[in-house]
């Protein structure tokens, strides 16, 4: 027999391989399909009330009608405040880990702490925020306490993504800078940071998306069921106020308030989901754009 001739044995092996590839492909599709089906169904259910008015009006008649403006505004406040706190700390922590820390027990402990911080259940973060910010620091239930809780919770997102982008800057650039007498910080500020800004921004965007969706951490630290604020006024909340939030509002109207027409919670869910997915899409598009214009 010719040595390269296909045998029955090799044919059956090939068929088996096709089956297996098909199986894996199906498994992947099985993960993706629900995503599309669910979003489609939710959009369909939400369509009767989804409009600009829905976004810009306050809830009416005990949340059985009207819109979600106070919740939308509250979420914006919480997200922005948490970003303002988490971004500088997260970026500096990442700079420490990537540029300053040596290979020693302290660095390993910090890395472990970052991983753990990311793994702490959100409800435990809520307990922490309640114990530390609301009660111990005396902030009371407020936007401030809630956004600080969110900031601690989302810190790992910023640290991880910044650290990755710092590590992507070639070591040769740092050595070249040191060779001409630049200090460590000058090197970081003039060469390393400008070339890893994209990763930092991606981290910020992901932080925003994560913070916008969280419910448990703000439940006991600053989010309320209902609060009347002026429609259309962007400065309607004070930092010491409690506020409504989209995620909390979705939870409230789908479980705590009887008799809400189904389209309203669906529309709220779509707004929340849409916000988060659009932010994520933005981050992905940004990443692809930046990859296309590498500077070295």
């Amino acid at each position: 027999m010719h040595p390269f001739q296909e045998t029955i044995h090799s044919k059956s092996r090939q068929r088996k391989e096709t089956y297996i590839k098909g199986l894996f492909c199906c498994m992947t599709i099985a993960i993706i399909i629900p995503l599309i089906l669910i979003i489609g169904y939710m959009l369909h259910e939400a369509s009767p009330v989804l409009s600009a008015d829905f976004l810009l009006k306050a809830p009416e008649r005990g949340m059985k009608a009207g819109g979600i403006w106070p919740a939308l505004l509250g979420t914006i406040y919480l997200v922005m405040m948490s970003l303002i706190v988490a971004a500088p700390i997260g970026v500096m922590a990442a700079i420490y880990l990537n540029e300053y820390a040596g290979d020693n027990w302290l660095t390993r402990t910090v890395n472990l702490a970052v991983i753990n911080l990311a793994g702490v259940p959100s409800i435990v973060h809520a307990l922490f925020g309640l114990g530390a910010f609301v009660l111990f620091a005396g902030m009371g239930k407020s936007i401030l306490a809630a956004s600080l809780t969110l900031a601690v919770m989302t810190l790992p997102v910023i640290i991880t993504s910044t650290k990755e982008s710092l590590a992507a800057v070639p070591m040769a650039f740092r050595e070249a800078c040191w060779n001409v007498g630049a200090t460590k910080w000058q090197t970081i500020r003039r060469v390393v940071i400008p070339n890893s800004i994209s990763g930092m921004l991606t981290g910020f965007i992901l932080e925003v998306s994560r913070a916008a969706g969280e419910t448990a951490p703000i439940m006991f630290t600053g989010a309320v069921f209902y609060k009347a604020v002026e429609e259309g006024n962007l400065f309607a909340y004070n930092l010491t106020d409690q506020c409504m939030a989209l995620s909390m509002h979705l939870f409230t109207i789908s479980t705590q308030v009887p008799g809400v027409p189904e389209a309203i919670p669906f529309a709220t869910a779509i707004v929340l989901l849409g916000t988060v997915l659009v932010i994520n899409a933005f981050s992905i598009a940004f990443r692809i754009y930046l990859r296309s214009r590498k500077r070295w």
Partner: peptide, 10 residues
């Protein structure tokens, strides 16, 4: 990544 981004309350 989108799947991971869906908030838990949703």
């Amino acid at each position: 990544e989108f799947l991971a981004a869906i908030p838990s309350v949703v």
